[in-house]
Design a protein around this nucleic acid. Structure first.
Lengths: 153, 153
DNA sequence: TATTGTTATACTCTATAACTATA
DNA sequence: TATAGTTATAGAGTATAACAATA
């Protein structure tokens, strides 16, 4: 009896890809938990950080866009944006064309905080670097953009 | 004023490594959320799946070992193991040498379920494959073991 | 009538603290 | 006295359902 592998259109690496996805899945879950603990700012959840990162890249976005981007339901994003606003990290303005929507953008405080957060992450990075050799780091650097693409595919 | 980069011992890729970690962090958070939704078995949490995966690789382990491996506190692992046992996916036996400890191992049902889960993941994989080219998959395959190493470093 | 965002509520997962049993 | 595991409890984060306002 033949194994039931997917018939991927681009070639014969289906089995290797499957093994990679297996490894990825478990690594992503575990790393996610560690990242939660390694929080740079104790008062900011991972998703809040991620939203700030998105705003830093995109400038501004509506709550709905942010919810889709972060793969979170709209009510959850309402709460997250409200918390960020209460901390003075985002600003909410009315949408110019559609009075149902709002426009969320980051404040100067957020920008400063992201800079500080980057500095602190470097400490964690340096401690991790002990355990990886240069070849492993190279593989990580090469895969990072692919993982990002995968995350919002 | 000089930027405050960490002084990594192995060479001059500190800046690239930092960028990679940034990308990794946000990708891991987002992918984690998507994986939660893409659950193969609706009744199994990501950590439960991860524990089964560990048992499949290691044969058996004590609750304490599993907790350390999954980066979860002992009480959480107690609950997870109890749920898995209730579903008939793991078996608990007394430790041969130490009557405080227990030995957790997977059942035949778990093995069958993991096989089915692998099959279903392939469907998801195939749909994702549309968005990645062969070069990107190659980078992912190369990085997968490094991510696993990072996850339990 | 469809869409954006919000409110109210409940659920899932994990953590901390206190406890039991064994080493 | 220290360690493995458990019980009880609380908290964080997210989801679903029902609703309001606007398109």
């Amino acid at each position: 009896m033949l194994t039931n592998m997917p018939d991927l259109s681009h070639g014969g690496d289906a089995i290797e890809n499957d093994a990679a996805v297996n490894a990825l899945r478990s690594a992503v879950m575990r790393l996610g938990r560690r990242l939660k603990h390694q929080r740079v700012d104790e008062s900011l959840s991972p998703t809040e950080m991620s939203v700030l990162g998105t705003l830093a890249r995109c400038g501004s976005a509506t709550p709905g866009e942010l919810a889709r981007r972060e793969h979170v339901q709209p009510p959850s994003m309402t709460r997250i944006v409200a918390l960020l606003e209460a901390k003075g990290l985002v600003r909410l303005e009315p949408h110019p064309d559609d009075r149902r929507q709002k426009v969320v953008s980051q404040t100067e405080e957020a920008e400063a905080m992201l800079e500080e957060s980057r500095r602190r992450r470097n400490v964690w990075l340096a401690s991790l670097a002990e355990g990886l050799d240069e070849d492993e780091w190279a593989k990580l650097r090469a895969a990072a953009p692919v993982l990002e693409k995968l995350a919002h595919l």
